[in-house]
């Protein structure tokens, strides 16, 4: 038995594919690749395959992660090659690492995510850097947050670890690292909604384009990608 951590992308081609469908596509790719995947015990055995975090419909990503467990040990490179060849167009396997059994799974390790968001056209590219600075300089950044009690205005500033201007080609854009994990999480579109309100422009859920750059765990000196500083076999 051996567990492998894999990092993959979800490109433009598949941004309209839901998270559950993506998981099924992975399961089928594993079967086609004929990897000796291990199954859970129980009445309805399922593949031992887990993913770090759902990616919202419409988002693209170059830093998604999951773990899979094989019944027999294969070279990580072979797993990458065989599985990579079977993934649908638009999903690319970037890296596969064999990890130790004591490693926490991706979901449990996750603490933050880095995004790049290209903002709605209503936010001008010119002077956006200064706008973003003023936005960040607010004492509290208020956003609607869904809680068990319904929508509540909360201060999301503590959940934003970094926020930078990433404007390119005359399109206002920003890059940010947000809390994400079992303890605390912030959705990228919540920041965009708050920014829109700050700028006095309407927020539409489909106006911005969202791209996830990476998922992080707590490393020895700050955040590191989920497949770095992992216990090896």
């Amino acid at each position: 038995m051996r567990t492998y951590r894999f990092k993959y992308t979800k490109g433009e081609e598949l941004k309209l594919l839901g998270y559950l469908d993506m998981m099924v596509a992975f399961q089928r790719a594993i079967k086609r690749a004929k990897l000796p995947i291990a199954f859970s015990n129980g009445f309805n055995p399922h593949q031992l395959l887990t993913f770090a975090s759902p990616l919202s419909l419409g988002y693209t990503s170059e830093g998604e992660y999951g773990d899979l467990r094989l019944k027999e040990e294969l070279a990580a490179e072979e797993v990458k090659e065989r599985l990579g060849a079977q993934l649908p167009d638009g999903m690319e396997l970037l890296r596969v690492t064999a990890i130790g059994d004591e490693a926490k799974n991706t979901m449990a390790s996750l603490v933050a995510a880095r995004y790049r968001v290209t903002l709605p056209k209503t936010i001008a590219a010119e002077g956006f850097g200064a706008v973003l600075e003023r936005f960040w300089a607010q004492k509290e950044i208020l956003a609607d947050k869904k809680t068990k009690k319904g929508m509540v205005q909360t201060n999301i500033k503590p959940l934003i670890f970094s926020l930078q201007d990433a404007t390119k080609e005359n399109k206002a854009a920003m890059e940010m690292v947000l809390a994400m994990g079992s303890v605390q999480s912030l959705r990228a579109d919540a920041v965009v909604a708050s920014l829109c309100e700050f700028c006095g422009v309407p927020f539409g859920p489909y106006d911005a384009s969202y791209h996830r750059i990476d998922l992080y765990q707590q490393g020895q000196a700050g955040f590191v990608p989920l497949d770095e500083e992992v216990p090896l076999p």
């Binding site: 081609e13 598949l14 309209l16 594919l17 839901g18 469908d21 596509a25 089928r28 790719a29 086609r32 649908p88 167009d89 638009g90």
Partner: peptide, 8 residues
């Protein structure tokens, strides 16, 4: 996903 094709 009904409209994107790209099936295996």
């Amino acid at each position: 996903a009904r409209y994107i094709g790209r099936e295996t």
